[in-house]
């Protein structure tokens, strides 16, 4: 099939139907919610850090959206475990498409990177580097 259906390989569909790390943490260091205004996809990421606040110890996400955004957030949640905060900051769009293992059509890239954006913005707000009022997203109380 072409680009559209090719995006829906088994791995994507599996993560969409059986999302990993789905839910909330009891005591997250930060929680952040992001929305993709063009399609209404919403993702919340909760992250717990180690005492030094350098390494990600636990991640949970919840959300509502298309298979691409949900599968991407699910796969990202697995990858973030044990990742350093610096490595999270450095994740770019290519890393996400590589993680997904499929070509993402240009109109759908925003869906694929939403989870990454939410995690990165959440971390920046947590460190005081980003004004929550100046993001498209909002921090949960």
């Amino acid at each position: 099939m072409g680009l559209g259906s090719d995006m829906y390989r088994q791995q994507i569909l599996d993560h969409y139907k059986n999302p990993r790390n789905y839910g909330e943490l009891e005591d997250p260091d930060f929680t952040h919610v992001g929305e993709n205004p063009s399609c209404g996809d919403t993702i919340q990421m909760e992250v717990a850090l180690d005492d030094a606040e350098e390494t990600i110890e636990a991640v949970r996400f919840t959300g509502d959206g298309c298979a691409i955004s949900m599968a991407s957030a699910s796969m990202l949640s697995e990858r973030l475990h044990g990742m350093s905060v610096d490595e999270l900051d450095a994740l770019d769009t290519d890393d996400i498409t590589e993680m997904l293992g499929v070509d993402i059509s240009p109109m759908r890239v925003k869906c694929a990177v939403l989870g990454r954006q939410v995690a990165q913005d959440g971390a920046k707000i947590h460190r005081g580097e980003l004004d929550p009022d100046r993001t498209r997203t909002k921090t949960e109380e």
Binding site: M1, G2, L3, G4, S5, D6, M7, Y8, C39, D41, G65, C66, A67, I68, S105, M107, R108, C111
Partner: peptide
Amino acid sequence: HAHDLSSILND
């Protein structure tokens, strides 16, 4: 999801 449906129909 409607966006997934639209992507597949595009094929």
